[in-house]
Nucleic acid binder design. Structure first.
Lengths: 212, 212
DNA sequence: AGCAAAATACTCCATTCGGCTGATTTCTTC
DNA sequence: GAAGAAATCAGCCGAATGGAGTATTTTGCT
């Protein structure tokens, strides 16, 4: 099988060297370019059509996260593995939103890089354990909302709220559930009281749990 | 170090046997109970205070996902690893929302279970590669919305939409931005046109990127 | 069987929302 | 400096929304 082409985007010369060496020693990979600047990366990478990019976050010119967005907008098939020492929520989730397929923190890089690459190429999303835990926990519904409040909603109330959260209007909810629009209103009144909100928009916020 | 106690929740007798055997052969684990029914699981597990639960989804009595919710509501520190053959989005994401810490599909169970357990216990979230990819991709913002549409919003339009997404009413947005309510309406009108939606609720859905 | 909760339905009323049309004033940008 | 985009403000209208009150039927559970 043909080797996969790899580009490393990293500005620290020491890390360029050390990570570059690691990559060069991995079987099946061709490190075709090392780039130290974000703007340069978005400029020249599209012409190099690599299979993989190993991307740092803290880059001069333009952050690695913005690079992801830009590069993937044109070449959605590129697999980007974030390789960084940041593990704050913003870095992690903005990277994933930008389209990164994996996220390794540098400290466990040496050991894991080979299997991360295999994982990437075989359809997975390699993440450092602590990152995976964060990502998974981000789905978890916090106590406060789901247990104290949402759970007091009755079956029908939940259905109504769910449809509302999909953008349905009262009339459409009524048709969907085979009840009258008045009943929908009654349910919503009770929902708003239970959730202590005053509009559908606020109720949806509680449902989606976006405290912001 | 003290062994970790494990409960297996699985209704298929064959799998009870085979998975049970695998667990018993893993070092550092004590398989203290095998349960074949969802309702029984939520009833007796709290008294057994296990460290880990390996949970099937398709159970009689009550689904493994509901079991997660219920059990974690009382004992949030339990680590639950979903062990199932389902890999549809609903199963995966509802499990994570319910609080599962890992998700393995049964076919690559034998090979991965040991390292999955180590991963779990050391703060990670083991997932089958295809599951991790799904989870990661769920963060990705679809082309259509973020690139073509959201980016065409002007500064002020984004501010208005942002406040709207926090549950503000027109009047409140106007006060917040020191503009008149008519201006807010104008911005909203342009936003709705650009996003091709017909209501604030739908606009928020696009913003939060919650398809369906 | 009987009670409590849930689900259903309706009316009245005030507010809000969204569509439509228009306008003036910056601010960029070429 | 002219063209165009962005931001501002305004009024009208009909539909949708939300609050309060009330009442009947159905369900769930003991």
């Amino acid at each position: 099988m043909k080797n996969k082409t790899v580009i490393l985007v990293e500005d620290d010369p020491d890390l360029q060297e050390s990570i570059g060496q690691i990559i060069r020693h991995l079987p099946g990979l061709d490190l075709i370019k090392i780039i130290g600047d974000g703007l340069e990366a978005v400029k020249i990478i599209p012409d190099l059509h690599p299979d993989l990019i190993f991307m740092d976050i803290n880059l001069p010119g333009c952050s690695g996260i913005e690079c992801c967005s830009t590069l993937l907008a044109e070449n959605p098939e590129i697999l980007i593995l974030m390789l960084t020492s940041f593990e704050d929520d913003d870095s992690v989730f903005n990277s994933l939103k930008a389209g990164a397929t994996g996220y390794l923190i540098k400290k466990d890089l040496t050991l894991k890089l080979q299997e991360a690459v295999e994982d990437l190429l075989s359809g997975g999303s390699p993440m450092s354990p602590s990152i995976a835990r964060r990502v998974v926990n981000s789905f978890r519904k916090p106590e406060a909302v789901s247990n104290q409040q949402l759970e007091t909603l009755t079956i029908q109330e939940e259905k109504v709220l769910h449809l509302l959260s999909k953008g349905y209007q009262y009339r459409e909810i009524a048709n969907e559930l085979f009840i009258s629009i008045f009943t929908v209103k009654t349910h919503l009144r009770n929902i708003y009281r239970k959730l202590q909100v005053r509009s559908g928009t606020e109720a949806i916020l509680k449902l989606f749990n976006k405290p912001s």
